[in-house]
Amino acid sequence: MILEFFLATSVPLAFLLIFLEKSQRTLVTFLMWGFCAGAIVFYINEAISAGLAGSIITMRVTVAPVVEELFKALPLFILAFLGKGQRKDLLALALASGFGFSMLENYSYLMGAELSGISGVVYAFTRAVTTSLMHGSTTAIVGYGIFLTGGIHRKALPALLFGLYSIAITIHALFNLYVSYTAQGRAVGAVIPLFLFVALMFLYNFDLIEESNREKRS
């Protein structure tokens, strides 16, 4: 049903793109890429999981973070290599990609959980404020890192991008480890994405405020 959900959400958004302005269109495109990445990763993870003969631990804390973060951040890597990493809205675009991915993932988990009534609502809300924020924040770390280091020498770019990617997958793996395998860890796992999101929000707005003040002074 993943492919059906992907089509049901992306095709209407594709029609919407026609009426949007440039920056709005870019944001929605990144959101659609998140859906696309979610669908691709779903099938890749299924194939790898079959090959690992049901090793859930390896899947959750090693394979899934590597595959998912790569596809979520792919358009960011492309923008960086094209020399367009200095966009002010890069963090927002990265968040859109991550949230789009998590929306599709939430759907697949909800379908698999087969919950009903209040338990389904609680499950969906819990995923929304923990896993979805985690997905958005880890992609946003890559996007914000590219923005901060904009103008870096092109020869240093591959090393930088891999470094940012490694931070994103480590945070993702830590989150999966805490929420999947320890009761106390679920509380820690719930706090990590919130902390990351608030920190990114603060840093993003701090930079914009400072730049706005600088422009006013000049």
Partner: peptide
């Protein structure tokens, strides 16, 4: 948490590799 040794390779390797790559980028 899992009470078992970390099976090589894992996510940790990416951080250790990333450290060297950041070092290389800075050096360049």
């Amino acid at each position: 948490i899992l009470g078992q040794s970390l099976m090589y390779p894992t996510i940790s390797e990416s951080g250790f590799l990333g450290f060297m790559l950041f070092l290389a980028a800075g050096y360049q």
